[in-house]
Structures are given as C-alpha cells and as structure tokens.
Design a protein around this nucleic acid. Sequence first.
DNA 1: CGTGCTGTTGAGGACGATCAATGACGGTGG
DNA 2: CCACCGTCATTGATCGTCCTCAACAGCACG
Lengths: 282, 282
Amino acid sequence: VLDAFIGKLRDLGLNRAEELQPFLEIVKPRGKVSRGQDILRSDDTPKHLIVLLAGVSCLYECLEDGRRQIIAFQYAGDLCDLHRFTLSESGRRLAVGALTECSIGVIAHKDLERLVVEYRSLALTLWRAMMFEASVFREKLAMVRRPALERVAHLLCEQLARYEAVGITSATIPLTQVVLADAVGLSIVHINRTVQELRRLGILSTKGRAIEVVNKAQLATLASFDGCYLNMPQVLSHWHISMGPRSDAGCAIACDEISLAICQTLQREERHLNFDTGTRPL
Amino acid sequence: VLDAFIGKLRDLGLNRAEELQPFLEIVKPRGKVSRGQDILRSDDTPKHLIVLLAGVSCLYECLEDGRRQIIAFQYAGDLCDLHRFTLSESGRRLAVGALTECSIGVIAHKDLERLVVEYRSLALTLWRAMMFEASVFREKLAMVRRPALERVAHLLCEQLARYEAVGITSATIPLTQVVLADAVGLSIVHINRTVQELRRLGILSTKGRAIEVVNKAQLATLASFDGCYLNMPQVLSHWHISMGPRSDAGCAIACDEISLAICQTLQREERHLNFDTGTRPL
DNA sequence: CGTGCTGTTGAGGACGATCAATGACGGTGG
DNA sequence: CCACCGTCATTGATCGTCCTCAACAGCACG
C-alpha cells in the first residue's frame, strides 16, 4: 500500500528507517475517490496533507471561464497539497482532482509539524519534494513557446517517465483528450488533431481510442524530451539520458536499513486499509 | 546592504537573531554584474548559492532557437539558484541574467549544508522560499490561456507588487519590451502592440519609452490580478486584497529581537562591501 | 434505449508570428 | 564634434497556428 510513498521518500533522500517509520505512522488512510471527483477543493481549510497512495490525480486551477488549467500531475506516492503547508495564501484557487480512481491518505498538519521539528532530515526531504515540483513547473513554463505537437509529445513523455517511476510500465496513458487539453492549454479540438497527427506519424497506436505509445524513441525525439528535470536516475536510464552522480548533500546517508521496521509498518497498515491499486485506465 | 535579504528572510519566518546572524555571516560579497551579463551560466558547477543583494535579475531557460524563456524574476534579497541545492539535475539548462546592474553575494554550499543541519528552522525557511518560487511558477502557468493584453498586464502587476516588497515604490518598470517578450512568451512585435494598447487605455504613461504605470487599479482589474500567491501581507494591503492571518506553523516564533546583533552584522558588512543600490532603470 | 461523455470532422475567423523597414537613442571612436 | 554602430521601439503586410462554433458518431452507463 505504502510502497510507492516509501519509494518516493527514498528517492528524495529519506533513507533511514528510524526517520521513515515515524513519518509513515502518521499517515492515516482516507478511502478512495472515484474518477472525476475532487480530492481537494480549493475552498476547504488546510488541516491535513494529502498523500496519493494509488492512482493518478492532477493539481489544477479553476479559470474564470469555467475551464481548468492543469498545473501538474500526481502519481502514487506524491503529496497532493504540499504547497498549503506553512505558506498560508499560496494555492488559494487550486484544487486536486482524481483522473483515475485514487486511494488517498492524510497527514495532519499538526503531526507533520511535530515530526519536522523532531527529525531534521524530514524538512530537507519535503523541501526536496517541493524543489522537484518546482522543477516540473519550470519545464512546463519552458514549453509555452513550442507548437502544439511538441507540447503534447512532451507531456506524453513526462507521463511515461513518471509512470515508470512508480513501477507502471504500460505504454497506455490513462488520460482523455479533454485532460490533455486542460494540461497543455490548448482547445480539445486542436488536441484531437494533434493526437491524430501523432498517430499518423506512427507514434501512437491507431487501434482503439486509448492513447497508447508505440514508438517511445520517436516520441522523445519529437518532443526533444530531456527529462533530467525529473531527477529520477533509475528511470532515466531507460531513456538513454546520462545523469551525473546524485549529490546527497550531507544529509542522506545511504544506509539500507529499511529493514524489518518498515516491513512491519507496511504489514500493519495493510490489514487496516485493503486498498487496490486503482490505476485502471479510464 | 543586506537589508533586502534580511527582509526576505523575515518574511519567510526566519525571525530569531540567533539563527539569522550565522546565516548572514556566511554570505560573501562577489561584486557586481552589469546589465545584460549572466550572473550564472547553465554550465558551471554548483558550488555556491547566489544571493541577489541589489538589482533585478531573471531565471531563464535557453531555447533551441537561440531565444530565451524567462521563468522568473528575482529582486534584491532573492536567492538566485536555490533550485541547484540538494537536487542534482534540476535546472541543467537554466541560467540567471542581470536585467539591471546587480550586486551579488555567494554562500558556499558547504557552509549552507552545515547551517541547515545545525539550525532546524533554516531548512524550513529555505523550503518556504522554494514554495514561494513554486507559487509564482504556478501562477505563470495559469496565465497561459489568457490573451496577450492580460498576460502583459499581469506581469506588470507582479513587477509592481514585488518592487514594493523590496521597498521600491517607483511606478516605472525597468524592463525593456524585449524582456517582457521573453517573459510572457510572445513576440517582440506583439508585445509592442500590446504596450501601445495599454498606453491607449490610459494605464501606461504615453511620455517617453519607459514603461510607467499611471493607473495601477485599472491595470490590476484588467489583469484580474489576485496576488495572494505572492504571500506578502504587508504589500498586498495596498492592492486592496484581503489576506487571512499567516499560519506560522510552529517554527516562526514572532520575536522582535532582531536587535543589536543584526545591526552590528550589517554595519560590519557594510564597511566591507560598499555596494550601491544598482536599480537604475535600463 | 435514451443520456452523457468522449472522440471526430468541417468551416470560418481571431490572435499572434514572421519578415522587413524605419526612427530614436546612447555609446564609441575618429 | 560628428560619423558610426548596436539596441530598442515602432509600423505595415502577410501568413500560420490555433480557437470557436457547429454537427455527428461511437461508446458506456443507467
């Protein structure tokens, strides 16, 4: 259940069992949210941090004309509303929506504050999580000038890369064209034509209405997808992208003592929750 | 000299003199960078964190076609390349350029790492700084759908608000139209026509080539500028925008003992540096 | 078997890009 | 002091991308 979350935290440098465990213990399961529903409304008061345990969700902003602009995608293990912690007014108009069926957990702000004070490296870990998010934002901002075809291609590359990061190797992207439109900021009609263009180029499957990548290499080339900004060494190797050694910055001592303590936590939680993966396409 | 930096840190919740002082002490002056020069190239190895002591700079990404996409603006007191700290590959293609004459200081990563471990609230402060940055990114992302006029108007609003935050009340924005184009992602020609439209609307001054806002209220209305994302209570009151009380999240104890220690630090540094403000337009 | 969402297609038009040329200004060097 | 140069601002004309407004087909769901 918490596998993806643990994996995420380890990637962020939270390696030590004695820090990981208390953090996992304050995660409370909160059930499921079905596709299309909001996981988080823009108006409710921030008392908890939301952890996405399974599924795909998106952070979006409501626009005046009723449409929405998707700011970022979130995958199993991601923290949905880290931006609302300790910074009062940021994200006032933001909401989080479920793009597939999602399993969520919550962490009370109070609990988190306590742990942040107690364990130094936790603040560093969450800081990194924030930096990662910002990294994705920057990349999206740099895409603004590019034409529709490259924008869409780039988005699909990011999807694939991040699926891989959470262990999903399927080449089928569980997003509708409407969602793509909201994400890249183009009209649905134009997205449709762009998707058809990608199919015509032999990059997407022509069978069925689902978006299935059949030529990943060509997709990456078209998008000139760099992917370094994702900071995921284990995944990026698949993309034939070189990465330097990670600078673990004096905090993340690489000790592999995840050990029994975590396994026990896992098993203990598992009996409580009984979540399925909830990542079924559409 | 360090006033803006201190102000920034205080806004971020680093209030206590005993934490502020050691942080200020590891800042080393590094001289000036003249307008148009790069403060930071995308290719140099991150060994230091750069602090903008005076002036305006921008974080930008080099595009393939030679142009640049400005991701964010930086003002006196901002940390220029926080994104390169502890996260290895993020911002590989990013650079920081001086938009006015800039005075910069540096903080060795080593020194910072040491302090982050020693003082708990420092990590929290820098984390907040990152969240603030991300907040600005999100806002820019949400602007993508809007037409040119609103995009430009919104950018100008942000400029004014952030100038105020560092104590500059001038309504003249020290940016060229070329910079505006790089920032909002439109062609220079179209920026020019948009600026003329803003002048025609009585929002910008028609005298001279400088961009001078004469009707701030109308500008804010046109841009539907919310500004909450900036998290700057003291400034936003001018913009007639309500803000709730800041949640100081268990760390930032509001003690006003900035006191002698800081003043002494200031004076000590001042004798070393002798920087001027360097915020002359163009 | 409707109802609703998604995907698909066409026509027309708006917004913004590109190309090209000019004027204004500041700085530099003769 | 003036000629020269580079940057910035400005303008016109043309063109392309993408939007909007339709209308309709397929599929899922009740």
